[in-house]
Design a protein around this nucleic acid. Sequence first.
DNA 1: ACAGATCGTATGTAAAACAGATGAATTGTC
DNA 2: GACAATTCATCTGTTTTACATACGATCTGT
Lengths: 180, 180
Amino acid sequence: MPPTRPSSAEIPDALDSDLGWTLGVVFRSYVRTANALVSHLPGGPRGYQVLAAAAQGLPGGQGALAQRLGVDKTVMTYLLDDLEKAGLVERRPDPADRRNKRVVATERGRATWTDTQTRLEHAEDHVLAPLDPADRSVFRELLRKLAAQANSLDPVHDTCRLVEELASDVPAKPRRSPRG
Amino acid sequence: MPPTRPSSAEIPDALDSDLGWTLGVVFRSYVRTANALVSHLPGGPRGYQVLAAAAQGLPGGQGALAQRLGVDKTVMTYLLDDLEKAGLVERRPDPADRRNKRVVATERGRATWTDTQTRLEHAEDHVLAPLDPADRSVFRELLRKLAAQANSLDPVHDTCRLVEELASDVPAKPRRSPRG
DNA sequence: ACAGATCGTATGTAAAACAGATGAATTGTC
DNA sequence: GACAATTCATCTGTTTTACATACGATCTGT
């Protein structure tokens, strides 16, 4: 998914008023900036999310953490390996359940987290720069409304229903053929 | 990049006012819907873009097409393989330059394109549903402004400059270690 | 006509994600 | 209290995807 990660200049013509396109342009612009701002810590953006979760001291082992972040548990394993190797977090066996390994941020990890947070705020300002302050808050508010609604109907079967609702000639699932 | 394709529920807590987060939620919501709506044609979203380009009859061979869409030329090769196998486009040798292979949409390809276009318009309405008509046009306009500016400073060195500008402790490039 | 460049394709390689198996540790039941 | 079943984190193997490179075919220059 990301399904789409087109790099730079693409379809510059008549799709200027297309919502999906403009949304993608703005989002990718932010993602590019944000990625650059967190590229110094292992795991990139996901490493930051893990660090943030650890610094906020939220409960649960690394499995729960993986589920919350939407990554596979095996990914979380070597994500934490790199993060721990960098001295930002620690795996600490849970005294209550020694199978669990609590993920706690080190002193340096907490400092790095707050530092990166301020960076990301700058990234937001960078993206919103072309708007004057009044328009910025309007945009934030509208976006917040959209996000709230999008979250409520996020479940997968909903888009499936929408597909069947609009589909005309989709009998089966034509998976992509292997390259050979 | 996608760099980030987190699936569903993630960091539900204090980041509600975070621009990057809400932007990502809305964008992923649209992407999910749009992907579902174009999943019936080979290559998914990129297959649709190729089909759209072919149906609009834009000039140039498949190499130029690949560059415009931001995908590798080798990807374009088997992308067109699948698309041609499905009878949506044809590779036609350019009479002026027989190295080039013009990509033209078949009759069925054009029909599929227009059909998919209307579907994607429904997807837009679906995302913008929580807003009343006035707010929708406001949102579209603000987003258009942001996209225009983002496009102008998209070049990579710009974000690099921004990184160095804000970086505090980034001496070298700590590439991620291989898993083993 | 011949050297060099360009287009599309084929091939190999590296990185990333997912599924399944493994070992350690807990819970339940008898 | 012992034993089966479950859960957690990790390891291993497979698959997919993108990229880099090499190749044959074709064009353009001299």
